[in-house]
Computed example of a mutant assay.
Amino acid sequence: MNIKHSIGVFDSGYGGLTVFKSIAEKLPQYNYIYFGDNARSPYGDHSFDTVYQYTLECVEWLFAQGCQLVILACNTASAKALRSIQQKVLPVKYPNNRVLGVIRPTAEVVGGFTSSKTIGVMGTRGTVNSESYLIEINKFFPEVKVLQQSCPMWVPLVENNEHLDPGADYFVEKYINELLDKDNNIDCILLACTHYPLLIPKIKEMLPENVSLLGQGDIVANSLVQYLKNHPEIASKVGVEGKKSFFTSGDAEVFNTHASIFFGADVVSERISLNIR
């Protein structure tokens, strides 16, 4: 029996929709299920164990919906949960399923965007404290120096739709200056949170001309294109009706309003219940 699957895309909330948007533009033919765990977001300040448990519950829900391949379009989940799921859970419970993240594909290419061999990484406290980007970038570009900056106010600004208001200027400028003060050779900044692309207009206004800005959407989408080419056994099982379904653990009406901003198109979602605790 030839069962067709969807590609699952997961985030703790809305930010992963910026990645999903890029993926859907690059691979519009496939069926997708997006799930945002808005009832428990943001993940950034939670412990490793809590993020792992939350992420695993959401991944298993997507598996139950027929997603053989799930993309963790969330830097915090990728940093704190991905490896444990890949190494401890999949081989035992889901040997035919795959879970991919956003950190490794970004680390594989980021070194090509710096001339000074010095880059800045801006992310949530959870992503920064995990040091995942320091570790992964060093594997591919050991000659590149990486400076990190946590930006705890950026996600709340974006999720409250205040990211383009004048009041956001203070926090945008504050974190940029704190990062650039760490090393004046930084010539590339990676936005290591999928919420942050909505702040790009303000960030660009405050960056020196010699500093480039790098988002993750196109990088992750291009990586997925290559992954599916390399794994036809997975690609051949994905439905090709171009369907997009959206689910949230939070309020669906609230999700729809905010999600449309991130996704750049109207979103109609359904609320589902997880084992919230």
Results as ranks from 00 to 15, higher is better:
L164M: 03
L191Q: 10
N161K: 05
F10S: 09
Q148M: 06
I189V: 14
V9M: 05
T55H: 01
L164A: 02
A252I: 03
E159Y: 00
N275S: 13
L90K: 04
T124M: 14
F20I: 14
I272H: 09
T248I: 11
Q226V: 11
L90F: 00
E162G: 00
V89F: 00
S130G: 10
V238L: 08
E209Y: 08
V99M: 04
L56T: 01
D165G: 01
Y54F: 15
S41P: 00
S78W: 02
K243D: 02
P91F: 06
S130I: 14
R125L: 06
Y196T: 11
Y227F: 15
G215D: 12
N2F: 05
E173M: 08
E25V: 11
S12H: 02
I135A: 14
G44H: 07
G123A: 15
P142I: 15
L228W: 05
Q65L: 04
P152T: 14
A81S: 02
A81Q: 02
V99N: 01
G126P: 02
A221Y: 08
L274Q: 09
P208V: 15
L69V: 10
I137D: 01
G215V: 15
S47Y: 04
A235V: 09
G15P: 01
F263E: 09
L100W: 01
S84P: 00
R40P: 00
